[in-house]
Write a protein that binds this DNA or RNA. Structure first.
Lengths: 114, 114
DNA sequence: CTGCATCCGCATCGATACTG
DNA sequence: CAGTATCGATGCGGATGCAG
């Protein structure tokens, strides 16, 4: 790896934008996160509804990505004390603020793929 | 993996949006692609300028990601027949159309990280 | 100056089986 | 119903050295 040049003119604002993009992509960039988030835009959903509406996702990956997004404050996990158990997921306000981004990601992809 | 239910009511439009998002994220989601694209928004840059303006990137990764984006039609590679060699990179029109997306990714990240 | 080739560690993800 | 545990494959990306 190259040595860092401590006296160079690397644009600090540029690095700040880099970090911002990295943070966003790390937050929503997981293999199944976009699909999950897009569905939750429509409102609260049960675990099984999510699982059944996302083709090819395994339960392992679904749970892992849900947990991460919960930790990142994007979604709320609501457990009902019932038998049989019921768990619902919903977007937080932070999660909801991603809506325009998800929409533009989707639109650009639909328009530009072959 | 769960069996695909061929008679279920998986929303085809939802899947289309999924694919759109996947395409976009696969296209710009590489480890260094956002940083490269953001810099090229400012105009043509030489290989060494890119390398020196992106902290911690290795030449291997820089070249790999440039090649992928060239293949995806996001950037043009311009080789000048000179000694010593000179190579410049610039956004294509397709690449330029990502500008608002990159901007919103950066802004959301800056605003929402702790 | 602008790369490419090779090796390899590490995280990610899939498959499968099991549980409160 | 809503998960968890374990194992193994795969692939990204880093380090290093070489080349046109």
């Amino acid at each position: 790896m190259r040595k860092e040049n401590s006296t160079n003119t690397i644009n600090k604002q540029q690095m700040d934008k880099d970090c911002g993009m990295s943070y966003t992509l790390n937050t929503i960039g997981g293999r199944w996160k976009p699909a999950i988030l897009y569905r939750l835009i429509g409102g609260k959903m049960r675990y099984s509804e999510l699982r059944d509406s996302i083709p090819n996702v395994t339960e392992r990956m679904l749970v892992l990505q849900l947990r991460e997004m919960e930790k990142d404050g994007l979604i709320n996990r609501i457990v009902y004390a019932e038998v049989p158990p019921r768990v619902e997921y919903e977007l937080t306000e932070k999660g909801n603020s991603l809506k325009p981004i998800l929409k533009s990601l989707s639109e650009w992809g639909v328009k530009n793929r072959d």
